Simulated scan of single mutants.
Amino acid sequence: MCKLMIVDDEPLERQALRIILKRRFLNLCILEDAKNGVEAIRLATRFKPDIILMDIQLPGKNGMSVQKKIIQFLPNVKTIIITALEDFNCAQTALKYGVLDYLLKPARTSDIEIAVDKAIKSINQVSLLDSISSKPATSSKKAINSILNYIHANYNQPLTLNEIATYTHLNPQYLSRYFKETVGMTFTMYLTNLRIETAKKLLINSDKSITQIALEVGYSDPSYFSKVFDKHVKSSPYKFKMRHYNRDDIMSGKK
């Protein structure tokens, strides 16, 4: 699981980023926030984040100074700058210090998600390639964790085994056998289970329509989603939602 740290002196900005990240990335550990440059360096030293979302205009040390310091002890950290400062020279300096992306406030949610997704993919790819060339026992664990992280970050897309094979630079047939031997089920079964379990949580805990939920968990056809859900849960999505809705009413004393 990748660790991410938010660095911004504005509480509302930090809160908004947390909401965006928690909603989009299920397999992401969001660390304690930093409110200024000094805190950012201290927390980065302590928690060693894989990804940093950071404003440039910070109290005390500016973001570029912080990045320059952090890459001395975390050379592979993926930093994404989110700032209101539209400055070409600053953007050039950011690239010099290994910044992955430079987003201008107010950044669109989709741009933030794309940048973080790119960071996660980059981290997982390096981790997978490193692990395959290491000792067999360690390799197996690290490699499958990287693959699972990729699936959890992209399960709501039309994900295929061939796409993961391309991402990992592995032969699809070999990957298929390796996945089943390591996880205990096929890639298709794992992906379906992940989508259905996520859909169950959304049906219970949200007011979203079944069509919306189908799209959010990776099914472009709501009818096909309902068919798959019924096969695995032995209930239609609507009946499942109503059953839990009625149970909640009984528990709360409603009629």
Rank of each mutant, 00 (worst) to 15 (best):
Asn62Leu: 09
Gly218Arg: 06
Asp8Lys: 04
Lys142His: 12
Val233Gln: 11
Arg243Gln: 08
Tyr174Glu: 12
Leu202Gln: 10
Asn124Gly: 09
Asp101Phe: 10
Ser252Phe: 09
Arg247Asp: 15
Leu26Asn: 14
Gln15Asp: 10
Arg243Trp: 08
Met54Cys: 08
Lys200Glu: 04
Asp111Glu: 14
Pro172Thr: 04
Gly98Tyr: 07
Lys180Glu: 15
Asn36Thr: 12
Thr168Lys: 00
Ala84Asp: 09
Gln212Ser: 08
Leu28Asn: 13
Ile6Met: 09
Leu74Tyr: 00
Tyr224Asp: 06
Asn145Phe: 06
Cys2Tyr: 06
Lys231Thr: 14
Cys90Ser: 14
Val233Gly: 09
Ser209Gln: 12
Leu103Tyr: 05
Tyr219Lys: 11
Leu170Asn: 02
Lys231Asp: 10
Ile51Asp: 03
Asp207Pro: 02
Ser134Pro: 00
Ser223Arg: 12
Thr79Asn: 00
Asn154Arg: 10
Cys2His: 10
Leu100Lys: 12
Leu202Ile: 03
Phe179Leu: 12
Met242Tyr: 13
Met64Ala: 00
Ser209Asn: 08
Ile164Gln: 01
Asn171Leu: 13
Val228Leu: 08
Met251Lys: 15
Ile210Ala: 05
Ser134Gln: 07
Ile250His: 07
His169Gly: 05
Thr182Arg: 10
Thr93Cys: 01
Ile80Ser: 05
Leu203Thr: 02
Pro172Cys: 05
Leu43Pro: 01
Ser220Gly: 11
Gln125Asn: 10
Ser131Met: 03
Ile144Cys: 07
Leu58Val: 11
Asp230Cys: 14
Arg195Thr: 13
Ile112Tyr: 04
Arg24Met: 04
Ile123Ala: 06
Ile123Leu: 14
Ile19Ala: 11
Ser226Ala: 15
Ile120Gln: 09
Phe229Ser: 04
Lys239Asn: 15
Glu113Gly: 01
Leu103Gln: 06
Val228Tyr: 08
Pro59His: 12
Met185Leu: 11
Ala137Leu: 12
Thr45Leu: 03
Ile114Met: 06
Glu216His: 07
Glu113Lys: 08
Arg23Asp: 13
Leu74Glu: 00
Glu216Gln: 09
Ile132Lys: 04
Leu191Glu: 01
Ser235Gly: 10
Lys135His: 14
Lys234Phe: 15
Leu161Asp: 09
Ser176Gln: 15
Gln92Arg: 15
Ile41Tyr: 04
Glu13Gly: 11
Ser122Asn: 07
Phe47Ile: 00
Asp249Pro: 01
His232Asp: 08
Gln212Asp: 12
Arg195Ser: 12
